[in-house]
């Protein structure tokens, strides 16, 4: 199968057509606080998708380094919702399980999401502990800080929770099979 006839995995994204307006000025990549960590910063990622390089786009680390600061989105001269697209890319990449293996953020997001599903609310130390199962070094690096937080009575000893976590978790089940537009 040649490249041009490969199906575009991003067609379900409601705003995806906006990238056709991209003038490749690079304002997005230049505004991005973490573009130095990205393999294909936003300008390049849009170019890849337009060229039909879908596999490279699906395996890109770029959406995972998006900090959601929205600097790209407010500066884009063609008003492309760059940050919103990064969210939609993450949703598709997660569904297709194509995130780079060494990427830490998908594990962090998974831990975060699991705690919300279990408790309804986030307790930072619980997210860190769950994430730390896969990345013990990162968790250990945060111990000196955790000690300072304990001394200032800022670490929650008990997990925060909604009143009825079991019925709250239904929100997750009801949206589980959602094949909605990203």
């Amino acid at each position: 199968m040649n490249k041009a006839s490969k199906p575009n995995p991003f067609t379900s994204i409601s705003d995806i057509a906006t990238i056709n307006a991209c003038i490749q000025c690079g304002t997005c990549s230049g505004s991005c606080p973490l573009s130095d960590q990205m393999d294909h910063a936003p300008r390049e990622l849009f170019a890849l998708i337009r060229e039909g390089e879908y596999d490279m786009a699906l395996k890109s680390n770029t959406p995972w380094f998006c900090v959601s600061c929205y600097a790209c989105m407010v500066r884009c001269p063609k008003e492309i919702p760059v940050t919103d697209l990064m969210y939609a890319f993450k949703e598709i990449i997660t569904r297709k399980r194509t995130a780079p293996k060494n990427q830490k953020m998908p594990d962090m997001y998974r831990a975060f999401s699991r705690i919300i599903k279990a408790k309804g609310r986030i307790t930072e130390s619980y997210v860190m502990a769950l994430y730390g199962v896969k990345h013990p070094l990162d968790a250990l690096k945060n111990i000196p800080l955790a000690v300072k937080m304990i001394l200032r009575k800022r670490l929650e000893p008990k997990a925060l929770s909604v009143s009825d976590p079991e019925s709250f978790a239904r929100l997750f089940e009801l949206t589980e099979k959602s094949e909605d537009k990203a």
């Binding site: 959406p63 986030i122 959602s178």
Partner: peptide
């Protein structure tokens, strides 16, 4: 009363309907 996590920067990258519902 009984507020929950807003989903922060995580949920819109996982599932749009879930993020909106949260």
């Amino acid at each position: 009363p009984d507020w929950n996590c807003c989903g922060a920067t995580v949920m819109f990258g996982e599932n749009k309907l879930r993020a909106t519902a949260l």
